[in-house]
């Protein structure tokens, strides 16, 4: 994978056992910073439910990491209980500040960020870094921490977790296919030209999502950033040694198919056929994508 990118920062708000439980006015967050060999940073925060914590995070990022790429991991469970409205608010503010940052939810212990479910995970079980886990009769030792005295972490782990969450689009594709399915169910009631019918849906902003999905040129603005597949295609480009060219081809084909559907004037049975084809191809694309790019 290319190393030509801005400094990457993962801020993980979690119940760290030995990180300061910080308040929104505190400035000692630097104590929780660990770095990998190429200078990427992991910032550990334990920011419990309190008024102003979104502002604190925004302030932290804009003052210290404005020229970095920032993955902000927000723990959805107790005792942090981050909510979707907070995540969206933070994302909007970061977009306004033109900072390349992405707030990402995690919870439940069974995501790849956790060592218990991924040897390259970066979180242990009880608010600590990963140590060992038992897999059947095997004892697996994590090598995430390289040098505790220098707060040095393993680049390989950092890169995996970063790639997984930063570029992950696979689930967005599945969500898109099922949002389409629900919209398609409605089609028989309206019998309008199918492209306009899809673009007019406002409840889930389906038109924005579909438009974002179809973008391929670098200077086009995506109205629904999470459905913009260009980072995914970039990721495939980085991963060319693993031969993801066929997946990239499938992606491009489905993008074109969706673009055609958005402009389609087909009605009735012809519209159903087009919708059926898009649904089938987009779900097939989902299945073909590497599972770890959730």
């Amino acid at each position: 994978m290319s190393t030509e990118h801005n400094t990457r920062v993962m801020i993980v708000v979690w119940r760290w056992i030995d990180a300061n439980k910080i308040g929104v006015s505190q400035t000692d967050w630097q104590d929780g910073v660990w770095r990998s060999s190429n200078g990427n940073a992991l910032v550990r925060l334990d920011l419990r439910e309190q008024t102003g914590r979104a502002d604190f995070l925004l302030d932290l990022i804009t003052k210290n990491f404005s020229d970095c790429e920032v993955a902000l991991f927000l723990h959805q469970n107790h005792p942090h209980n981050f909510e979707e409205s907070e995540r969206i608010d933070i994302q909007n503010q970061l977009n306004k500040a033109q900072i390349k940052a992405r707030p990402i939810f995690f919870y439940g212990g069974d995501e790849p960020i956790y060592f218990s479910h991924n040897p390259l995970g970066i979180l242990g079980i009880n608010g600590d870094f990963p140590t060992i886990k038992i897999d059947g009769t095997n004892v697996i030792q994590s090598d995430f921490i390289e040098d505790p005295s220098k707060k040095r972490i393993n680049q390989k782990h950092f890169d995996f977790v970063w790639d997984f969450y930063w570029y992950g689009r696979r689930n967005r594709i599945l969500e898109l296919s099922e949002t389409l399915r629900i919209r398609f169910f409605d089609y028989l009631k309206t019998r309008n030209p199918v492209g306009a019918f899809l673009r007019q849906e406002t409840e889930t902003k389906l038109g924005d999502k579909l438009l974002s999905f179809t973008l391929t040129e670098p200077d086009e603005e995506a109205p629904a950033i999470e459905y913009d597949m260009r980072p995914y295609l970039t990721y495939f480009k980085y991963k060319k040694q693993e031969d993801y060219s066929s997946v990239a081809e499938s992606m491009s084909k489905v993008q074109q198919r969706v673009k055609t559907l958005l402009n389609s004037t087909a009605v009735d049975k012809d519209a159903e056929t087009e919708m059926d084809t898009v649904y089938r191809e987009i779900t097939a694309l989902y299945v073909s994508l590497p599972e770890y790019t959730q």
Binding site: H78, G109, D110, N171, V287
Partner: peptide
Amino acid sequence: PIGFTTLAALWKKFWDGHDKG
């Protein structure tokens, strides 16, 4: 089931949590 989690799995997360949660 394909892709998404099941309701039963979510109940288990709600019920058992992890780390005594």
